[in-house]
C-alpha cells in the first residue's frame, strides 16, 4: 500500500530560456489507494509531466511529492527506491527495449533492484502472464515483435519490479481497438489480482469511463477536477469547455433524454447503457 500525495507541485520546462513553459502549476492531489485513477486532459495539459513527477523522474521546482507522507526528494540518494515503488511506463515505451531477448529486457528492472536470479525469473514469468505475452516470445529479440507485443513487453518490464503503484502514460496509444481493449483488460485484471494502486493517463473517454474508479481532469497545467467518473461525466459543458470529449454513450444518453427517453444518471459505458435499455424495454 502506498499513499501518493502532491502538494503545491509546480514544474517548468526550459527554465531561464525564452521557451520556458509551465507544465505543472500548483498541483494538489491525493491518489486513491488501491484504486484505478485515470488522468485526462487535452494535449499539452501536463499529464505526462504530472506522472513524471509522481514517478520521481521530474523534480518539482516548487512543492512536494509525498509517498506515505514522506517527501520523495528529501534524500536524493534514495530516489531510486521511490522509482522502484512507483513503476512508470512512459508514453510509447516500446522504444526503450534494448536487450537481446524479451526475457532479459523484462528482467532489467528487477536486476537493477539487486534481486536473486530465481526471484528475477519468477517475476519475469509473472509479469509476462499479466500482459498475456506467450512464453515462446520471451526468447525472441525485441525487434522481431509486433508493435503491440513490444508494448506489452515494455509494460511487463515495469510490472516485474512489483511496484506499489503502477503508472501508465497512454498505454494504449496507437494500438488497434482489440489491442487497446486487451491492454486495459490486463491492467484491470492486474489491479484485481494484486490490489495495487494504478494510475492511467488516457485520451479515450470510453476507456477511462469503463475502467477507472476516479478521474483527475487537467487543463493548462492545473488539476481542475478530481472526482468519480460519474460526477465528471455528469458535467458535459465543463468538459467540452476544457477541450475534452464525452464518452459516446454519455452523448447518446443526452440525445435520448432530449427525445424523452431517460436512462438516468451515471450511464456512460456500453455495458451500463445496454443493461439499462434492456431493463426499460422489458418494463414496457
Amino acid at each position: 500500500m502506498a499513499r501518493i500525495t502532491l502538494s503545491g507541485v509546480s514544474y517548468s520546462y526550459g527554465k531561464k530560456t525564452p521557451y520556458e513553459i509551465k507544465a505543472l502549476d500548483g498541483v494538489n492531489i491525493e491518489i486513491a489507494d488501491g484504486k484505478i485513477t485515470g488522468i485526462i486532459g487535452h494535449t499539452g495539459s501536463g499529464k505526462s509531466t504530472l506522472v513524471g513527477a509522481i514517478g520521481g523522474l521530474i523534480e518539482p521546482d516548487e512543492g512536494q511529492v509525498l509517498i506515505d507522507g514522506a517527501d520523495v526528494w528529501k534524500n536524493r540518494k534514495k530516489i531510486r527506491e521511490h522509482r522502484f515503488r512507483v513503476g512508470l511506463v512512459m508514453q510509447y515505451p516500446e522504444y526503450q527495449l534494448f536487450e537481446e531477448t524479451i526475457r532479459r529486457d523484462i528482467a532489467f528492472g528487477p536486476r537493477n533492484m539487486g534481486l536473486s536470479d530465481e526471484e528475477i525469473e519468477e517475476r519475469v514469468v509473472e509479469a509476462a502472464r499479466f500482459v498475456e505475452l506467450p512464453e515462446a516470445l520471451l526468447e525472441k529479440s525485441p525487434f522481431e515483435l509486433s508493435g503491440g507485443e513490444k508494448r506489452r513487453a515494455a509494460i511487463a518490464g515495469v510490472i516485474a519490479m512489483r511496484p506499489d503503484v503502477l503508472v501508465l502514460d497512454e498505454p494504449a496509444a496507437g494500438l488497434d481497438p482489440r489491442g487497446r481493449a486487451a491492454i486495459f483488460r490486463n491492467i484491470a485484471e492486474y489491479r484485481r489480482a494484486t490490489g495495487k494502486t494504478v494510475i492511467i493517463v488516457s485520451h479515450s473517454m470510453e476507456d477511462v469511463a469503463t475502467y477507472c474508479d476516479e478521474l483527475v481532469v487537467m487543463s493548462g497545467a492545473k488539476v481542475i477536477m478530481h472526482d468519480t467518473p460519474n460526477k465528471v461525466f455528469s458535467n458535459p459543458e465543463f468538459l467540452v469547455k476544457n477541450g475534452l470529449d464525452l464518452p459516446q454513450i454519455a452523448r447518446l444518453n443526452m440525445y435520448l433524454r432530449e427525445k424523452g427517453i431517460d436512462l438516468g444518471e451515471g450511464i456512460y459505458t456500453v455495458e451500463g447503457a445496454f443493461n439499462k435499455i434492456m431493463e426499460l424495454s422489458s418494463k414496457k
Binding site: G52, G55, L57, R80, R83, F84, G87, L88, V89, M90, P93, Y95, Q96, F108, G109, N112, M113, G157, V158, M161
Partner: peptide, 15 residues
C-alpha cells in the same frame, strides 16, 4: 529522444 530513453530506463532503476 535521448532524454526520453534515459528517463524510461531511470524509471526501471538505471543509474
Amino acid at each position: 529522444e535521448t532524454d526520453k530513453i534515459m528517463t524510461a530506463q531511470k524509471a526501471r532503476g538505471a543509474d
